[in-house]
Design a binder for these strands. Structure first.
Lengths: 142, 142
DNA sequence: TTGCCTCCTGTAGTAGCTACAGGATCAAGA
DNA sequence: TCTTGATCCTGTAGCTACTACAGGAGGCAA
């Protein structure tokens, strides 16, 4: 069973932001949206993040880097939190995400092709008769 | 000099939305953000879109399809509106956009590769010891 | 005239943050 | 001990590019 490793004492929010590379306010945002648990507080109300909190943030940041949405991460975390997730469930979420990434790549490559095509027709001169503008203006509406 | 073609009488917003495939509210949004000029109105205040308005919307929609941001489209349109744009300026905007699309593709392909790698390590079974979770949890913070 | 559809305006919600205001707390130096 | 400046707290507004809704007015056919 995967667990978040524990080994160092608490950090305040600013220090956690620095070490994780995450924006200060984003940490609070992840708390309000429920991705991060509410951390312990000092008597004065300052947040103190345990090693478990730090690992959880790292998990979130890594998942975001890989393009998972907040809701997808919420699903991943809730499976882990419940404790009895199967590897198959995690795999399904991941491959679904992979498919949407692949689709996005395909879309962007079409787009890239089109942009190359229309910009290659352009003489780049001072002539104000522009094939790019013509291409963008396109045919009249039906 | 490129111009927007004119040939049919005015349309109301709903009709324009239907023909252009653009959402009804989006048309108003483009007006408030200044991409579309304020159209003529009937006595009762209903918007009436001329052929020029329709061409302009088509230009915007096509540019959005190609992934230009609203600000990029604003630049393109203001060059056209000023009337004395050079084809070189348009070409520059387009190739800048093309570069950002290409960068995005490169980023997504790395991401796709990583997702494939981590999900291929997974046995997909009921075993709750998941290499994907391990990969996402990653190494401890510095 | 009744009913229904479209139109109008202003405003709020979406994702995923980021930034700011106005106040409290902390830690180090004089 | 006092002061100064950094950091913390909360709540709220802003960003992009839309989309949706509420509540009211106009248009048109039976």
């Amino acid at each position: 069973m995967t667990e978040f490793t524990v080994s160092r004492a608490g950090l305040k929010r600013g220090e956690l932001a620095k070490r994780s590379g995450c924006n200060l306010e984003t940490i609070r945002y992840y708390e309000t949206t429920g991705l991060l648990h509410e951390p312990a507080r000092t008597d004065a109300g300052h947040r103190v993040y345990s090693e478990v909190d730090q690992s959880r943030l790292r998990f979130i940041l890594r998942s975001r880097e890989l393009g998972f949405t907040i809701e997808e991460i919420r699903s991943l975390l809730s499976l882990v939190d419940d404790g009895d997730y199967s590897c198959g469930e995690i795999h399904t979420l991941t491959t679904n995400h992979l498919q949407s990434v692949s689709r996005k790549i395909a879309d962007l490559r079409k787009l890239e092709r089109t942009l190359k095509d229309i910009s290659s027709e352009c003489a780049k001169g001072n002539d104000p008769d522009c094939p790019i503008i013509d291409a963008l203006a396109g045919p009249a509406m039906k």
